[in-house]
Design a protein around this nucleic acid. Structure first.
Lengths: 181, 181
DNA sequence: GTCAATGCAAACATTTTGCAACTCT
DNA sequence: AGAGTTGCAAAATGTTTGCATTGAC
């Protein structure tokens, strides 16, 4: 995520994203409303992953109020449009991130501390195309996520030792597992 | 998925899976109950991806009744135990599949017809380890999914043509998009 | 006998929907 | 003018939880 953009680049990116969205809508005879504009702008101003609810809150704080339903409806359009991507970290809500103007990346999630690290997705994209081709498939996109232990957690938790991780997190975190044996 | 197992191999696999689960439970001072046994067995008898609800139904049809809550609780344990893996196709329910005794694979989803194809995950696993290492990460697992068009749909839908796909499926399927231009 | 597991229903959280009022184009 | 959009609240979904009862070890 291009968190290091200066204000000018950001404004530039914003504008082109808006245009892409507007054109996408026009192509489908949909309307570019004030609410949709507020939402694209809010999304483009977010460099982190976010949930629908968070976006809504953020927008409220900036007095860009829209209905929750509108946020959900618009996020779907933005996904279809390719400006936003869904990310599935937990089994609960969907997370979103805008992918417009940034380098494609995927995520690595630490099962111990939950930290999320992004990495360049180009190798993955290459592999996906290859695999797809082998199956007569035409790849358009992928979802990839590596789960494991981050550097810090690896240190404090020697490999080979069976620890309770936050997999399906079946109350694994209560840490009162009196294992015998 | 090893759908081609004969009855004997299947029974063999079933038994070892049960043992793995039993041991997993014992290690944590949890109990191997009749319900849990029913559930592992049902899971191991399923070679397709399934949702919690489907498993429940299937079990009911075979008069292996358990409460829905028990299914959810047990599936979590099975995930932690490594016998079952969560698969996230849609944004709705979680799908599960048992991964015990089968070759590791990932999925390819056709955005047009929804077809799901499995492919060998070994290359992906290699790549994940590599990428993880580059970031001081210790990879334990991954989730990978390729989205695109299957062979059939690619034929009926020339590449380059913008079609309505079932991405976020924002009512994209109503097919009454009178595009202009 | 003890601690954990079950079943049930109620609770939850997130997302979707129906509909009247509104607004882009 | 008219088709699409909004906001709201209600509904729908999928999953989790509380608790009394039951069961494994």
């Amino acid at each position: 995520m291009p968190a290091s953009l200066d204000a000018q680049d950001r404004e530039e990116l914003m504008r082109t994203a808006e245009n892409v969205f507007r054109e996408f809508l026009r192509d489908r005879s949909l309307k570019y409303t004030a609410e949709r504009e507020k939402i694209v702008r809010a999304v483009m101003n977010t460099d982190e992953h976010f949930e629908a609810e968070q976006l809504l809150l953020m927008m409220r704080q900036q007095d860009k109020r829209v209905a929750k339903a509108t946020v959900y409806r618009t996020l779907k359009l933005l996904v279809d449009c390719g400006i936003v991507k869904e990310v599935h970290f937990s089994n609960k809500q969907v997370h979103y991130e805008h992918t417009y103007g940034g380098d494609p990346h995927d995520h690595m999630v630490c099962r111990r501390c939950g930290r999320i690290i992004e990495f360049d997705a180009r190798e993955v994209a290459k592999l996906r195309t290859l695999i797809a081709a082998e199956h007569g498939f035409h790849a358009l996109a992928h979802r990839f996520q590596i789960q494991g232990l981050c550097a810090t957690c690896t240190k404090s938790c020697p490999i080979g030792l069976k620890v309770k991780l936050l997999t399906g997190k079946a109350k694994a975190s209560t840490g009162r597992g009196k294992r015998k044996k």
